[in-house]
């Protein structure tokens, strides 16, 4: 196996939200197989800057798979070919010498492209604002054992809380649906005692916000689960479907 790669990159370039955008092709040489995908893009950008061209804009922050900032379609797959992996954790050893790699931003009407590979994911923030919070009494920190949480529930809640909000579920979904993201947030809080006061209002408002942001419907194709770097299960979607049905049957109306 070669330790360096020469690659052809087909990258979506778009100067701003309203620009038309197009694919442009770049060659990079001598990419170490130990590099991450983002480091490979750093090499490309160094090269572009030296040539006096605009570097490719992409979101990134922690580069260790927990911030949820990075994310792009790599050869038609959200975060590339690996399971439970963000783009920053994807290694160049997964690619072959001489390969052409197509890199696109997330595509969803709710995630407009701002520039190149950067999309506006504030729709997710607005879904969180609609109900992803709990009410707590202020004052001293409560005694740790006042709210016992069964082990099973704590595990399930934390599995859902692992969502990093990267948007891969929306990007990979054939309908650009945000069900997995919203369901992860709803599940996380519905499973914990702290989340009970707003439990019904939360699911109704978050779903209403999700719909108004014009994400697609869920077809239960489960590509979201396969693309999720945090391993969120589609069982959360089933739970949200249940929670929403119960809340609406109890007469709870959305109130955004």
């Amino acid at each position: 196996m070669a330790h360096t790669l020469n690659l052809t990159l087909r990258i979506w370039r778009q100067s701003d939200r309203d620009a038309r955008g197009e694919f442009r092709t770049y060659d990079v040489r001598g990419i170490s197989t130990h590099m991450s995908f983002l480091e490979m893009l750093d090499v490309l950008n160094e090269q572009l800057i030296q040539q006096g061209e605009e570097p490719v804009a992409f979101d990134h922050d922690c580069r260790e798979g927990i911030c949820g900032q990075c994310g792009m379609m790599i050869n038609g797959q959200a975060h590339g070919p690996d399971r439970e992996t963000t783009t920053c954790q994807l290694h160049m050893r997964r690619f072959e010498n001489g390969q052409t790699i197509t890199i696109e931003p997330w595509r969803a009407r709710a995630f407009p492209v701002i520039r190149d590979l950067v999309v506006d994911r504030s729709a997710f923030d607005r879904i969180i604002q609609a109900g992803g919070y709990i009410s707590v009494r202020t004052g001293q920190a409560p005694e740790a054992n006042t709210l016992p949480v069964p082990y099973e529930d704590a595990e399930k809640a934390l599995d859902a809380a692992a969502c990093i909000g990267c948007g891969a579920c929306v990007a990979q979904c054939k309908n650009a649906s945000a069900m997995l993201f919203t369901a992860a947030k709803v599940s996380h809080l519905a499973l914990l005692p702290q989340g009970q006061p707003e439990r019904r209002r939360r699911v109704v408002n978050m779903v209403a916000r999700m719909d108004s942001e014009q994400f697609g419907n869920c077809t239960n194709t489960y590509e979201c689960e396969a693309a999720c770097p945090a391993g969120i299960s589609v069982g959360t979607i089933s739970r949200m479907n249940r929670e929403y049905l119960k809340a609406r049957l109890a007469g709870v109306e959305p109130n955004l």
Binding site: R10, W12, F23, M73, N75, G76, Q77, A78, P81, R83, T102, E104, R107, A108, R109, A110, Q172, K174, N175, A176, S177, Q214, F215, G216, N217, T219, N220, T221, Y222, E223, E225, A226, A227
Partner: peptide, 29 residues
């Protein structure tokens, strides 16, 4: 709704589910 939600289509699109042996070609969903 679903078509509209995507907006611009991807240039290249592949499944990530590893249990899709034949890709999406015959998958009923």
């Amino acid at each position: 709704n679903n078509r509209a939600a995507r907006g611009r289509r991807y240039d290249e699109e592949h499944v990530k589910r590893q249990d899709r042996t034949a890709g999406e070609f015959l998958a009923p969903d």
